[in-house]
Amino acid sequence: MSETAEAPGPVTIVETPIHLDYKFTPGVAQSRFLRALERGEITGQRCPKCQKVYVPPRGACSMCGVATDEEVKLSGKGTITTFCVTQIPSPGLVPPYVTAWIRLDGSDITSMFLIQECDPAEVRLGMRVEAVWVEESELVPDLGNIKYFRPIDEPDAEYETYKDYV
């Protein structure tokens, strides 16, 4: 804003705070997923048509457009199919930190998670990882139960086994 003593300059911006409250309904499928998380389990749902397993489940196979119902319990281990090293600060995270697309064993889609307990420079495609959970007493129906993933002592997956999961 440019102003002179004689005439005030134009108003260039007005701030109007908007406060709106919403209730959130996760849905039937995600509610089941959240209840499983509360028990310390990860569950997906299998599409009755293409047989692919979705995690987190959203109640439908988005490719087939049909409802999913069959629950599938997953181990919490998976493979990094690709990742990014973030160098800019984010609330609660000190850069550099790694976010990876992880294909959980038994699922057919990737999910994005933090990778910790590991030097970012060591993270690589095909790396095998597992979920690290909050203490049992802290379990709630929230994906935040999984604090992050960490490397496990298994050989890297072959490129051919995960290259299509991006």
Binding site: T25, G27, V28, A29, Q30, S31, R58, G59, A60, A67
Partner: peptide, 13 residues
Amino acid sequence: SEPSRNEVEMLLP
């Protein structure tokens, strides 16, 4: 007021 289903679950059927 839909109590339990999300948009996808409402739309599918």
